[in-house]
Amino acid sequence: MNVKQPYVVTAIAISFVVIVIIISTSSNREVASETTSDDRPDVPKAVSNWPQEELRLGQVSGVAVNSASQPVIFHRPGRSFDQYTFNASSHYQHIADGPITEPTVLTLDPRTGKVVGKWGANFFYMPHGLTIDKHDNMWITDVAMHQGFKFKPGELEPSLVFGEKFQPGSFEKNLCMPTSFAIASTGEIFLADGYCNSRILKFNAAGQLMKVIPNKHEFLSLQIPHGLALLESIDRICIADRENMRVVCPRAGLYGLQGRKEPPLTIQEPDMGKVYDVSVRGNLIYAINGPTSGVIPIVGLTIDPQNEKIIDRWSPPDGGFNLPHAIAVCPNGSSLYVAEINPNKIWKFELVPPK
Rank of each mutant, 00 (worst) to 15 (best):
M1A: 14
N2H: 14
V3H: 11
V3P: 02
V3F: 13
K4D: 07
K4L: 15
Q5H: 12
Q5A: 15
P6T: 00
S15R: 08
V17M: 09
V17A: 09
V18P: 08
I22Y: 13
S26D: 12
N28E: 15
R29A: 13
S33A: 12
T36G: 05
D39M: 09
D39H: 05
D42K: 15
V43S: 02
S48Q: 15
W50K: 12
P51N: 12
Q52I: 02
Q52E: 15
N66C: 00
S69M: 14
S80I: 15
Y84L: 09
A88N: 14
Q93Y: 02
I95G: 05
A96H: 13
G98Y: 09
L108Y: 05
P110H: 11
R111A: 14
G113D: 09
G113I: 02
V116E: 09
K118V: 05
K118G: 05
G120T: 00
A121V: 06
F123Q: 10
M126F: 06
L130G: 03
L130R: 01
I132V: 15
D133W: 11
D136E: 10
I140G: 11
H146Q: 08
Q147M: 15
Q147W: 05
F149H: 14
S159E: 04
L160V: 13
F162N: 04
F162M: 08
F162P: 08
K165W: 07
F166R: 05
P168Q: 00
F171T: 14
E172A: 13
N174L: 11
C176R: 06
S180K: 14
I183C: 08
I183A: 10
T186R: 06
I189T: 06
L201H: 07
L201Q: 11
A206P: 04
G207S: 07
V212H: 03
H217D: 14
E218D: 05
S221C: 03
L222A: 00
Q223V: 08
I224K: 10
P225Y: 08
L231P: 07
E232I: 04
S233H: 12
S233D: 13
I239W: 02
D241I: 06
R246Q: 12
V247T: 04
C249P: 12
R251Q: 14
Y255E: 01
G256S: 02
R260H: 03
M272G: 06
G273E: 09
V275S: 05
V278Q: 09
S279R: 07
S279P: 13
S279M: 08
Y286P: 08
I288V: 15
N289D: 08
S293E: 08
G294M: 06
G294T: 10
P297D: 04
P297N: 01
P297C: 05
P297A: 04
L301K: 00
L301A: 01
Q306I: 06
I310F: 03
R313T: 14
G319N: 02
G320S: 05
G333P: 10
G333E: 12
L336Y: 05
E340K: 05
W347A: 01
F349P: 13
V352K: 10
V352W: 03
V352E: 04
P353V: 00
K355P: 11
